[in-house]
Each structure stands twice: as structure tokens, then as C-alpha cells.
Design a protein around this nucleic acid. Sequence first.
DNA 1: CATGAATGAGAGTTCATTCAT
DNA 2: GATGAATGAACTCTCATTCAT
Lengths: 195, 195, 195, 195
Amino acid sequence: MGEKSIQKKKYILKTAKDVFTEKGFKNVTMKDIVEACDISRGGLYLYFESTEQIFLEVLKMENEEGEDSFSDSIPEDATAAEILLLFLKEQKKELLRKKNSLTKAVYEYFFDNHPPRKSNPLKKQFDASVLIVEKLIEAGVENGEFVCDDCAGAARNIMYVLEGLKISAQTIGITSDGVDKELLFVLRGLGIGTD
Amino acid sequence: MGEKSIQKKKYILKTAKDVFTEKGFKNVTMKDIVEACDISRGGLYLYFESTEQIFLEVLKMENEEGEDSFSDSIPEDATAAEILLLFLKEQKKELLRKKNSLTKAVYEYFFDNHPPRKSNPLKKQFDASVLIVEKLIEAGVENGEFVCDDCAGAARNIMYVLEGLKISAQTIGITSDGVDKELLFVLRGLGIGTD
Amino acid sequence: MGEKSIQKKKYILKTAKDVFTEKGFKNVTMKDIVEACDISRGGLYLYFESTEQIFLEVLKMENEEGEDSFSDSIPEDATAAEILLLFLKEQKKELLRKKNSLTKAVYEYFFDNHPPRKSNPLKKQFDASVLIVEKLIEAGVENGEFVCDDCAGAARNIMYVLEGLKISAQTIGITSDGVDKELLFVLRGLGIGTD
Amino acid sequence: MGEKSIQKKKYILKTAKDVFTEKGFKNVTMKDIVEACDISRGGLYLYFESTEQIFLEVLKMENEEGEDSFSDSIPEDATAAEILLLFLKEQKKELLRKKNSLTKAVYEYFFDNHPPRKSNPLKKQFDASVLIVEKLIEAGVENGEFVCDDCAGAARNIMYVLEGLKISAQTIGITSDGVDKELLFVLRGLGIGTD
DNA sequence: CATGAATGAGAGTTCATTCAT
DNA sequence: GATGAATGAACTCTCATTCAT
């Protein structure tokens, strides 16, 4: 596949992402993507052979891009508490977005497709997030910002609460205030009240 | 619709429940249900006109049956802590069930169908559970079993954690131990360690 | 079939007539008739075995009733011209009726079903009408009301014009004035102007 | 849609015309057309989405072709009477054709579908024909071929008689002689006897 | 006689996928 | 590489017709 087609592949993935964002995973057909990309039916098959493959590559692309953007937004001299707050705000923004990112599609996809635990990209991401939060909490405990005698537990707890909020946002709905209340409760568990 | 057809309707709902349990919501066609029930194509349409209608009636049936079975299992003289533990164990059992109940189908359905918040049955159920847990915690606080200065917040927190565990069980997978760890963490927040 | 069932048969035919009147012939299903009659599916089959059979019996019933009603409305001492006008007015009323009698259903039925010419009930009716009109014209010519040297031809012509008006009413639409213009033109051919 | 598919579309329309001619409108299913064209089920849907759409395009095609073929057949130096006779012969041929053109299908379709009078293509065609005949009669009156003091009325009368003959041909049946008798009667009204 | 549940054939429609150009 | 017409499998849904009660 030459230089030119790599461009096209990226174009397709970017366009497909919008489609998945709007319609989830199962509702998306090859036809939908063909039409969104305004390419020929056969053309799409030159690059991808199923919505599943496209979706997985969209996810991969997302992860690669996503990683950077968060760490980029952290000020050099931020305290642990500040970074944690930033992280939570980011998550909140994400989960409240009306046309909500890929969350729905991701859930839908992984409902039906259970990659072996070890290679489950969702699990990897989850575990990575837990680790980051854990490190943050540990750092915060060390310099007296947080109180916590089970940092790993607290980190996991935060992540599960976030998962709970995320799925609730997609199913029963949730307000900005609703999210704040939960996050505050969690933070109070770390010994701090917040703005 | 006579006595007899009511029986049949129930039979269809019960059979359909298994189908939804196995395949989720979107993957289920009228044909699937027809075949599972071993009735004729047209026969199904005498009772239901879409998988959606069937699914919603399955849910209703589930809720009606579910309510009783839990309260039935509570001993007369149980303490608040005991009841809470019972409740959590029940939830754990539910969320670990391999062919996992209707969870997947429910999520899938409500991803695409957002009933107005007021009439969202999922929300109703969630709120009801929060209330129950809240009352339990309050009772526990009163007789010294729990320590907690925001019972409502704690109850909501527990429910969101449960939601997080539920969705995680469906997507990234989770072990019995993993669930226990989370529940223990939450309970410790109420001032108790557990068996 | 006993006394009672003859009543029921008549009831079905009367109800079915309304259905055919509203929906034509082809659009009517056994189900439609069953529902209109509010009887059971099987019940209908005890009396009739197809919409075709029902329709033909409806037509027979109509003809039997129709014959009397027209001749009843003619005054004893009417002149030929008066009777002819009466006849044309009757036809006009019929063909302008919005929910137009059985015309549509009749045409639809006979498009697909061509009984041998001799036994075609539609043809019988048409020929009978031609004859009546012819006799009227002859009578009118004799007593100087009309001028006409081919009474049979004129009668046939009138009937074909009426057919043309009837089908036009059903397809391209026609106004009361439109009908009047045609009828006047035809009457002028008989040497008379009219009110 | 490229050059090639335009060919195919025409092919489908031509084939479909035969189907409508044979079976009328309501009796024709997408499947019938698919089979007549010997194409795939899905293939037909690439071009048309319903029998109605196909039918209307068949009609349009017919009208476009029909217009030319008649005017082409008129000799340069024909008199008004000659042209009128030609026109009537054409109509006669049309209405006697055993597998009778689209007449039946057209009637069937317009029984159920009443486009607003202004845009009813059937009405347009009817009105256009009336106008043509009227002009012919006027021309004939001017040069002494016809006698007539209400050319418009006579033209309309001729067209309604033709409609009457057309519907009669489809329902009660009519012979070549039968048609001749009617047309002669009408022509005699214009002051001429004919071959 | 009457009921109405049940059956199964058949029409409509959509898409993943292929393939000649 | 790219196109888009074509195919056919799979679903949905509706009724005529039957039959046990």
C-alpha cells in the first residue's frame, strides 16, 4: 500500500470515527461508512474488510492520539491534587458530551467481542488509568495533600465510579451536578473538599 | 386473549428472555425468537409486534419477579449490615453470572432508546435501589453499625460502583476476587471490615 | 343453512358491501370483512370461501334491490322526456357520490374476471339500460318530444357517455357542472334543451 | 447513474410495461418484475423503489413515445375529417387490442391514487385530446366538412364516448363492429356519414 | 354452528460482498 | 488502485386458510 493510500486509510478512519460516534457500533454498516466517506463500495474493501476491523483501527488511532493530549495539558508545577482534579474534569467533560465520543460504540463492541483478558485493549486502558491515579494519590499522600491508607484501592474505586457514571450517562442519563456530587464524595474520601 | 393464550404469551416471554440473555438485544431477530419458541412465523405476531415490545415486556416480567425474590430472602431479625451484605452478595452473584442475565441486552437497548428521564425504567430502578441502600445505611448508623455523615451520598456511591462493576464485568471482565476487593473498599468507607 | 344463518349471511353481505364501497375490490381481504362484521375468521368461511364469492353475491343483492327503487320513483303520468331526465339525474347522483357506491370495486373486479360475454352480469345490466332508454326515446319521438332517426343508436350513445362519465369520475375527477354539460349536449342531440 | 445503467433502466421499464399490460397494476409485485427482467431482487431496487414508481415512469415513457408516433402518421395534405378519422381509428385499434395496452393498469392505479386534479396526468392527457379534437372540428366546420354549433361540446362528447368504449372493452367486452357503430353515430352528429 | 389460535407461503427491503471494467 | 452495478441471503410482516375445541 503506497504513500497515497495511507492518506486515504487515515481519511476513512477519521470519517468512520464520526459514524461510530453517532450511531454506536452495531448500527453501523459498511454502507454507512461508504456513504460518509463518499467513496465506492468496492473502494472501502480495498482497505478494510469489515466494520469490526475499521472499528478496532479507529480505537487504536484514538488511543495513540489520546495519550498525548492529556499529558500535554498538565502544567509543569501542578500538585498531585491539581492533576487529579484535572483528570476528573477531563473525564467529566467526556462523559457529559452529548454526542458522546465513542463510549457507546466501545461498549457495544466489547459486549459481543471478548478478547482474551490479557489482550483486551479496554482492560489495558483501564489498568493504565488505575495506575496513573494510584501514583497521583501516592504522591498526594506523601506531601500531605491526601489522606489514604489504601492508595491502590482508592484508585480502583475512583475508576469504577467513573465507569459507573459513564454507563449511567449513556443509559439513565446524568446531569453535570450529578457527576459533581459523585466526584466530590469520592474526593472527600481522600480527605479533601473541592471547589 | 383467553386463559390459554396468556399461558403462551408467558411461555414466549420466558423463552425470549433466554434468547436476549444469550445474544443481547440488537442481535435478536423475530426469527430467532420464533425458532427458540418453536412456533410459526406468523404465530409470534399474534402476541407481539417487534423485538422491542417483547424485550420491554421481558423486563417488566423480570422486575415483577425480582422484587419479591430478594425481600423473601431476608431473615426477620437481620441487622442493617447483614441486609446490606446480603444485597451486595446478590448483586455480585448477578454480575458474575457467566451467561450474564439481561445486563448486556438492557444496556444495548437503552443505548439506542432514551425514554424521557421521568419514565426511564432503568432510572427508576436505579433510584429505588439508591433509596433502599440509603435507608439501610441510615438504620445502620442509628444503631452504631456504620459510621457515615452523608448517607445519601454513600448510597449513591455504592450504586455507581456497582454499575461500574457491572459494565466492567461485561467488557473487560472481572473476577470474584476483584468484586470483593471493591465491595470491601466501599464497606470500609462505612467504618466496617467484613468477612 | 337454517333461518338464522340466512339472517347472518345477509348481515355479512350488507357489511361487506360497505367495505367494498370504501376500498374497492382488490384491496379487500377476508380479514377486512371479518373485522368489519366483527365475527370470527372461521365464521366467515362457514358462509363464503373467498372475497370473490362475497363480492358477486353483494352484486346480486344490489341488483335485486336496485331495480325496484328506480321504477318506484317514477310518477304515473310522467312524459318520456321527464322519465329520461329522471333517469339521467339518478345516474348523475350516483356517479358524483364521493364515496362512490360500488363502481370502483365493480370495475376492478371485472378487469380481472371476464365471464363469458353471454353471462356477464355487467353486460346484462348495460344492455337492459340501453333498452330502457331506447324505449323511452321511441316513446318520446312518437309523441313529438324528441327528434331522432336512430333511437337504438342514440340510446347506446347515451349509455356509453354515461360510462365515460363514470370512469372519469373515478379517475380524473369530474364536477357536477361537467356532468350537466355532457348530458345537455346529449339531450340537444335529441332535439331538446333542458332546465 | 452512468450510460449503461440508463440502458438498463429503460430495459426494466420496457419489460415492466409488458408485465403491467398483462396483469394490471395491483396484481404486479416487485418480484414479478424482477422475474420478468431476469435480474436479482436487490438489483431492481437499485433503480426503483416500488411498483408505483416503476408504473409512473412507464406511463411517462409511454406518453413521450406516443405523442410522436401519432403525429408522424398524419399525411401532410390530410383534411380535418381525414385526420379525425385517423385519430378515431387509432383509438379503436388501441381499445380493441386484446392484451390491451396499459388501460387496465392505468384505471386500476388511478382508482386508488388521486393526484390533485391540476397535476393528474390522466386529466392532462384527456384535456389535451379534447383540445386536439376541438381544433380538428373547428377546422372541419370552416371548410365545410362538418356541421356543428358547439365544437368544444362535440369534442368533449367524443372523448367521453371513447372513454365509455374503453372501459366497456375492459369490462363487458366490445366487438369491432360495436365500436364502429358508436363512432359512426358520433360522426353523423357532425353531419357526415363515413366509410 | 362458531371461535380464534396457529400455520406457512410469499411479498417487501436492506446490505455485505464480489467482480468486470 | 477505484468504481459501482449486481447478486443473494436474511429479515420483516401480512394474510388466506385450517382445525381443535
